[in-house]
């Protein structure tokens, strides 16, 4: 599959002839330089965007030609996300942030599941703290708790330690892989950090929109 966008200077190919399989419970790390197309690839795999050519399958369903609404339904309750900038809802506390995807998916005991998930990331004492009052590392823990709360089949993480110091980044990486090991969640992770690269089952190198290894 491929992805291209129209620019004032003409058509720009961001991804070209990508062919990739991610197996169930596999941890795949996508690496590459800035602008290489790794975040675009992650978005296409998660169904956040549409490929310009070729097909993308998620849970056996072809995302090509599906509307945003249909792709949302495919993701619902099965996909988790962790972002570099955390993307928590400001003005809401940690518990409410973790409950958000559970309630969006219509899960009844959202609060209980959210509390459990926060316990798993070590934030049992911060459930009622507004997220803007948490440290960067704690905010990313809330984001991880939110991602794992729905018991996702696949977790997509985009530079999850990119905004954190080395020590905190290490803790977050440990936590994420620990939870992944516990739950057997498939992990697709975009990074350029050496330590995270080593932890994946498989590394995929992308350069100028082309898959060089993997």
């Amino acid at each position: 599959m491929g992805k291209s966008v129209d620019t004032p200077d003409g058509k720009l190919d961001i991804l070209k002839n990508i062919s990739l399989d991610v197996k169930y419970q596999e941890a795949v790390v996508i690496k590459g330089a800035s602008g290489s197309g790794k975040t675009t690839l992650l978005g296409l795999m998660a169904g956040l965007d549409q490929a310009s050519s070729g097909d993308v399958f998620l849970f056996g369903e072809n995302l090509t030609g599906k509307s945003e609404e249909q792709r949302s339904s495919i993701r619902a309750g099965r996909v988790g996300f962790v972002f570099q900038s955390f993307h928590l809802v400001q003005g809401a506390n940690a518990l409410q942030n973790v409950m958000l995807p559970l309630e969006l998916a219509g899960i009844a005991d959202a609060q209980q599941l959210a509390v459990t998930s926060l316990n798993q990331v070590g934030l049992e004492n911060k459930t009622s703290t507004l997220v803007e009052h948490l440290s960067g590392g704690e905010q990313q823990r809330v984001a991880i708790a939110r991602a794992f709360a729905v018991k996702p089949t696949v977790l997509f993480a985009d530079e999850p330690t990119g905004n954190l110091d080395a020590a905190t980044g290490r803790q977050i990486a440990d936590l994420m892989f620990h939870l992944r090991d516990q739950s057997g969640t498939t992990l697709v992770l975009v990074t350029h950090e050496g330590e995270l690269l080593e932890r994946g089952d498989r590394q995929i190198l992308i350069e100028s929109g082309r898959l060089l290894s993997g």
């Binding site: 809802v89 400001q90 003005g91 809401a92 518990l95 409410q96 409950m99 958000l100 309630e103 969006l104 959202a110 609060q111 009622s128």
Partner: peptide
């Protein structure tokens, strides 16, 4: 605090 979605989310 029981249900977060919508009302709590809006207010937040």
């Amino acid at each position: 605090q029981r249900r977060f979605w919508l009302r709590q989310y809006l207010l937040s």
